[in-house]
Amino acid sequence: MADAAPFDELVARASRGDRLSLETLLPLVYDELRRLAAHYLRGERPGQTLQPTALVHEAYLRLLKDRPDRWQNRAHFCAIAAHSMRQILIERARARDAQKRGGGAPRVTFDESLPVTAPDGRVDLIALDAALDRLAVVDADQARIVELRYFGGLTIEETADAMGISPATVKRHWALARAWLARELL
């Protein structure tokens, strides 16, 4: 990965409490998220172009909230970004769920009972989240691979890079993790 050195060095300086480097770091962090956004864009369909951007915004704000002294390097950052994405999506799914059950304040304007059609690839994210937590108990690495690949949008190669293992290993573990989760959910 290009520019890995300055990023890692800045993370190191930021974790020593260097405020100046923190300010230098944040745009770089955003660069990193933009790179993630580029992944979404490659898979984008017409009519939903801005949603990945919104997701990046949210993930970015979350990362701002967390003190960056927790980031050890670029790979670690990717992991945290993917984890943020996972949390955001799960929270949204929960909020939708709560609305459907009619929880919360009485609503006069927003009708929540409209049916939602289920296109291909829909996953019960809340169930997936719980299953992923169970998988992490059995095999933490495999759960991380799923988080990076599915929620972080990383390719096999990038996941390998971020985890410091070979792409072949990622590919094999991904197949098993996917089967494990499918057995839980499908």
Binding site: G43, L55, L89, P119, G121, L181, A182
Partner: peptide, 28 residues
């Protein structure tokens, strides 16, 4: 059991969530 799950998984988790569930990201 896992191989059976693998064989019926199809495109499970292959489509990113924001593409498969755009309504999650759309506004209420």
């Amino acid at each position: 059991a896992l191989l059976a799950a693998h064989d019926r998984a199809g495109g499970f988790l292959e489509t990113p969530p924001w593409a498969a569930m755009p309504d999650l990201l759309s506004e209420d």
